[in-house]
Amino acid sequence: MNRMVESAIVLVIVAVITLIGNSIGHNFGLLEALPGMAVLFGICLAGIAANRFVFSKLPPVLYIITFGMLVTLPGFPGSEQFAAWVSKVNFLALTTPILAYAGVGIGKDLDALKKTGWRIVVVSLFVMASTFVASAGIAHVVLKVLGEI
């Protein structure tokens, strides 16, 4: 099966699970969160397509993040509407199916995970801490430049 089709199927499954979780645990209904999920789906699909057809040496997440930032930049046509739609999709509802998928992926390579041993825990802690500090630093600089803080 084509990689794009497989990715689209996985994205549809994640979108459906997210919409169900969003409607159960949060104040937004299925139909209210549907436009935001469609925007997220489109951004992800565009990022995967760009990875496949433009420059495949970069990870798809780089394209997805870039497209997501572009469509929500002030001055981009429809950015306010996109941001309003996506704000109806709760972050925790979005992470649940993604983490479940990651868990299944790791579970398939349990022997490889066992071989890495305790070192993977140390590396993971450093990666998470440095990602958090870098994200906070970037956010601080951007908010300072915008005059928000």
Rank of each mutant, 00 (worst) to 15 (best):
46 A>S: 11
91 F>P: 05
91 F>S: 13
36 G>K: 08
82 F>R: 05
99 L>C: 05
75 G>I: 00
38 A>M: 06
147 G>D: 00
32 E>Y: 08
138 I>F: 04
109 D>V: 09
121 V>P: 00
32 E>R: 06
74 P>L: 03
41 F>I: 02
145 V>R: 14
93 A>W: 03
132 F>G: 07
32 E>D: 09
19 L>W: 01
51 N>D: 11
81 Q>V: 07
74 P>G: 07
145 V>D: 05
76 F>H: 04
54 V>F: 03
127 V>Q: 10
46 A>I: 15
118 W>E: 08
62 L>F: 12
105 G>Q: 08
67 F>G: 07
137 G>I: 07
116 T>P: 02
24 I>C: 04
144 K>N: 13
148 E>P: 04
100 A>M: 05
35 P>F: 09
132 F>A: 13
32 E>N: 05
87 S>C: 14
47 G>N: 10
1 M>H: 10
20 I>E: 00
97 P>S: 05
34 L>T: 01
147 G>T: 01
49 A>F: 02
80 E>M: 04
50 A>N: 02
23 S>H: 11
28 F>Y: 15
38 A>Y: 03
131 T>K: 10
34 L>R: 01
56 S>V: 09
89 V>M: 08
70 L>K: 00
80 E>I: 04
3 R>Q: 09
66 T>A: 15
102 A>P: 10
61 V>I: 15
90 N>S: 14
48 I>Y: 10
27 N>F: 06
103 G>V: 01
78 G>A: 04
38 A>Q: 01
132 F>K: 13
100 A>E: 00
79 S>A: 08
92 L>P: 04
7 S>T: 15
